[in-house]
Design a protein around this nucleic acid. Structure first.
Lengths: 190, 190
DNA sequence: GTCTATACGTTGATAGAC
DNA sequence: GTCTATCAACGTATAGAC
C-alpha cells in the first residue's frame, strides 16, 4: 500500500467528516489495512493531515497560476467568469476543494494557529495573481478606473460566497447564486 | 445548575471547537459539574446540540424580523449597510453567531440531514424578509429597475462572504473586505 | 440534582512476530 | 510493511447512593 493511496482516502474522509469526525480506523479500512499499519507510512494522524494541507496549498496555487497564464489574454469578463465556473464544476468531483474549504475554515483545534498561518500565506499568493489581471484590466480600460485592489478583494469575496453555497446548498443552488452575484459584480466594476 | 447555563457553556465550546471537538466533560467542567450530572438536564449530547440549534434559528430570525421592522423606512443604503455592520459587530462577542456559522456549515456527520433541513427553512425565511425590503426599494426607485430577487440573492451572498472572512480572517480583515464588497455591490444595484 | 462508581466501545499510538 | 496483541486515555451513557 502506497502512502499516496492512504492520503487520498484520508482526504475524502476529512473533507466529508472533518478531522475529529474521521478515525484512523476508517482511513485504514478504506484502503484495506488495519489502523496500526498506517504507522509504517505516517508517524501520526496529525502527520497525515499536515501533509495533505501542505500539498493542497501547493496544488491549488499551481492551478491558479496556470489558469492565469493560460487565460491572461482573454477579455476580463471571460477570464473571471471561467475562473468562477471552475469552482462550481470542480466541487462535485474534487474532494481536495472540499477538504481545503472545510479544514481551512475549521481546522482541528490544536492545530489552529499552524493552519491559519499557511492559509493566510496561500490567500495572499492567490490574491496577488488576481491583482495582476485586474491591474492589466485597469490599464486596458476594461473596467472602471477604480482601484484594482477593490475589484480583487470583491472578487475573492465572490468566490467565498459561492464556496459557502457549494458547501451547504449544493451545485444547483450555487449556480443560481452565482448568476445573481455575477450580474451585480460585473455591473459594479464596469 | 440551570439547563440554561449549561447550554450557554456548550454554545461557546461548540462554536470554538466544533461538535466532535467538544466533550461532555469539558462542558460540565465549564459550569463546575461532573459530566454525569449533565444527564439530569439533557438526555444526550445530541439533545443539547439540537436544542441549541433550534433556539438559534428562532433567535436569529426574530432578530432579523425586528431589524426589518425598525429600519424599514430607512433609505435602502442605510438599511443594508447597518444590516451588514451588524454581523461584524456581533461576531466578536456573540458566540451564537459563530455557533450557527460553524455548525450549519459542518454539522456532526450523523445529524447532517436534520441540520440541513432546519438550515434551509431558516435561510428561506430570512431571504423572504430581505426580499420585502428590496421590492419596496424597486417600487421607490431607490435602485435599478431590476429584479429584486437578484439583489436579494446577491446581498445574502455578500453576508456569506463577510461571515467567511470573520471566521478565518478576524474582524479587521472582514472590515477591509466589507468596504470593498460593499462598494462594488452598491455600484452594481444602483 | 449532584455525586461516585461503573460499563463499554473507540480513540491514537506502541511493541514485536512474521 | 502488515499483521496481532496490547495499551492508556477518553468518549458517551447508565445505575444507584445521598
Amino acid at each position: 500500500m502506497s502512502a499516496l493511496l492512504i492520503k487520498e482516502a484520508a482526504l475524502v474522509l476529512f473533507a466529508e467528516k472533518g478531522y475529529d469526525g474521521t478515525s484512523l480506523a476508517e482511513i485504514a479500512d478504506e484502503v484495506g489495512l488495519k489502523k496500526q499499519s498506517l504507522y509504517s507510512h505516517f508517524k501520526s494522524k496529525d502527520d497525515i493531515f499536515i501533509q495533505l494541507l501542505t500539498e493542497t496549498f501547493v496544488i491549488e496555487y499551481e492551478r491558479e497560476k496556470e489558469f492565469l497564464q493560460t487565460h491572461f489574454a482573454d477579455p476580463l469578463f471571460d477570464y473571471l467568469w471561467k475562473s468562477l465556473r471552475n469552482y462550481t464544476e470542480r466541487y462535485q468531483t474534487d474532494s481536495r476543494l472540499k477538504f481545503w474549504l472545510r479544514l481551512s475554515f475549521f481546522p482541528p483545534y490544536h492545530l489552529h494557529d499552524q493552519v491559519m498561518q499557511s492559509l493566510y500565506a496561500h490567500i495572499q499568493q492567490v490574491d496577488a495573481l488576481y491583482l495582476q489581471r485586474f491591474e492589466q484590466a485597469v490599464a486596458n480600460k476594461e473596467m472602471k478606473e477604480e482601484n484594482a485592489q477593490t475589484a480583487t478583494i470583491a472578487f475573492s469575496a465572490l468566490i467565498d460566497s459561492i464556496c459557502v453555497e457549494l458547501v451547504y446548498g449544493g451545485k444547483e443552488k450555487a449556480e443560481t447564486k452565482l448568476q445573481a452575484v455575477w450580474t451585480v459584480y460585473w455591473n459594479g466594476i464596469t
